[in-house]
Design a binder for these strands. Structure first.
Lengths: 197, 197
DNA sequence: TGTCTGACAGATATTGAAATCTGTCAGCGG
DNA sequence: CCGCTGACAGATTTCAATATCTGTCAGACA
């Protein structure tokens, strides 16, 4: 019973990512994945009930990996305003880097996410929770003044959509982008900070 | 020399909108437009050098019409905060209404705009100028406190992208949308207002 | 007994030949 | 003379025949 030969969901996901990387979403088939694992395609259906569920699982892996640094940032301590700014800039940078490094693969994952609405929705909710965590820390520190933490976290998330939603990815490379990000972050921080007298 | 029979760019644009409405962007051809006007398609090329330029002109008409109420709002007078809020809500409502009333036509115009980048860019710049107008009025009234009016106007525009960029149109119908808009507008207004003591 | 195979039906994608469209231009007709 | 026509070349789209893929399942194999 060689472990390397046992067919696990994990191995299938790995192979699926490989196949996606090589062929792209449009051309990748379950048969390709099975071939990469040297099994029949019927075997893949023992572990994932459909091609859609396989794609969803790949999307979830991808989003979870991307989210990891942000979870850490939200859980850390320190002054909330700096932490919020850092969190937002990190969120933007992660996405931006993915586009720059491998635009083709980014496009593949983007298309993948389009079909995995539930997974994406859960991921977004998690992001909002992370922002809310920082906001409530800031309120506790007396540096933020916020009516409704949850609603404001959602508003911050919505307000920054342009720099983390893939629909706007083409614009991220523009030269005026960094200064526009600076202006946006400054505006949002002013919106949550307590008034200085 | 019957005026109704003279072929003008205006008449061609009107006919093109009709054809788009009837067939959709994918199926609408220059031949269809010519047929609607009862002329040969060669004649259309006397007035527009290419199909692309015809589409651009239609897109421009559409955007200009949509922009009209917003220009008026920005040019009006009154307290800047109320005016900014009204402007944003109007901008959202205009787009939302277009989607609700005729989703098919909205999709057509959306696809149209994708190919008319320059026209769209000019339209966006105009929007930012309108926001900047209201912001600088607010500064003059002593109710807004803004470092760089132009940059902040851009930031307000960017922050509200989720509710005026057609890429997010599917989300506009969701029931939680209005309260999220309220939270976002409140956040942005807090970000530009002078501190209350 | 439980995992995997391979053949199968229905759904989906590919392909290339035929039809249509875009953009041009010489010339018609008022 | 001037705006319009209609035929044309090359590009693009359509359509239907063909090939491939998804998802199932009865049975092999260990």
């Amino acid at each position: 019973m060689n472990e390397a030969v046992v067919l696990t969901p994990e191995r299938i996901l790995e192979a699926t990512e490989d196949v996606l990387r090589r062929f792209g979403l449009a051309k990748a088939t379950v048969v390709d994945v099975a071939r990469a694992l040297d099994v029949s395609h019927g075997s893949v259906y023992r572990h994932f009930p459909s091609k859609a569920s396989l794609r969803d699982a790949v999307a979830k892996r991808w989003l979870d990996r991307a989210n990891e640094p942000l979870c850490k940032l939200a859980a850390s301590d320190g002054p909330a305003p700096e932490r919020l700014e850092k969190w937002l800039r990190t969120a933007f940078t992660i996405k931006q880097k993915k586009v720059c490094d491998d635009p083709e693969m980014f496009a593949t994952y983007l298309a993948l996410a389009q079909g995995a609405r539930e997974v994406v929705e859960a991921y977004k909710d998690k992001q909002v929770d992370l922002i809310a965590k920082i906001l409530s820390d800031g309120v506790a520190q007396g540096v933020f003044e916020v009516d409704d933490v949850k609603a404001t976290a959602r508003a911050v998330f919505d307000a920054t959509v342009r720099y983390h939603h893939p629909a706007h990815a083409e614009e991220w490379a523009k030269p005026e982008c960094p200064s526009r990000i600076d202006a946006l972050i400054a505006l949002l921080l002013r919106g949550v900070r307590v008034c200085k007298h």
